[in-house]
Simulated scan of single mutants.
Amino acid sequence: MNTEQLQLVLQSAVQALPTLLAATPVTLGYALAAMLLGLPLGFLVALSRLSRFAGLRGASSLFVSFIRGTPLLVQIFVIYYGLPSLGITLNPVAGGIIALTLNAAAYLSETIRAAILSIPRGQREAATSLGLNPSQTMRLVVLPQAARVALPSLSNTLIGLVKDTSLVSVITVVELLRSAQLVIARTFEPFGPYLAAALIYWAISSLLEVVQRVLERRFARGG
């Protein structure tokens, strides 16, 4: 690449920035929505996998296995393009959020389940001896400690979701990647807009990593 070509790439990247930055809140919105919805769903799935009832364990294990064993892109296609054949039609926003939420819930459930299992059984027994019922033991003893254990993985899941939102561009959601594609369709210069989009994803991920480290240090001091 000569100097002139480099200048053209940088110019196209700079020109694409306003459009891409305008779409960045959409990317963040999808990631945060999937995380906020996926956390409680993942928690329920984790509890189901730890349940004494075989039916709950089996159903939740099947859900996790299916989601983790299939590509997110295929899941988006099934939800957005497949469900209409069953009479269920979703708009791109709902389809994208549902797909990301289900995917996040499956991975979060494994993180939460592992964190819960990492708490020594003796602490549960001690809580029971103090008169706490199972619900109180989970809420007051197990979950606060499990949250510290799970924090790095939860943060990594959110970072992964930010990048995974790029896949909803295939169902016409105008997020960061789709915005770059629209700019390219006008300018016929792909390198600059794609490079700018990549740098924005990198900046978001780096910022979230900093927040993760701050939270980890705070939790460590609290421990």
Rank of each mutant, 00 (worst) to 15 (best):
Q123R: 02
I76T: 01
V45M: 09
P40E: 10
E4C: 14
R68W: 02
G95P: 01
L151K: 00
I97E: 01
Q5P: 14
V142Q: 11
F188K: 08
I67F: 11
A59S: 11
K163F: 02
L28G: 03
L36H: 11
L90R: 10
M138R: 13
A23F: 03
L140H: 15
E4F: 15
R113K: 08
V141I: 15
P144F: 09
L154E: 06
L177S: 09
I200A: 10
I204E: 01
I171L: 13
A126D: 03
Q11E: 14
L143E: 08
G29M: 14
K163V: 03
L39P: 04
G223I: 02
G55A: 04
P193C: 07
A114I: 06
T187P: 04
V210L: 15
T111W: 12
I119R: 06
L72Q: 06
L86A: 07
A198L: 03
T27Q: 02
G122M: 14
G131H: 00
G192S: 10
R221I: 03
I67D: 08
R124I: 06
S12Q: 05
Q181C: 09
R217Q: 12
S51K: 07
Y107D: 10
F66H: 06
A146T: 00
L130G: 11
E189M: 01
E216Q: 13
V14E: 12
G222W: 01
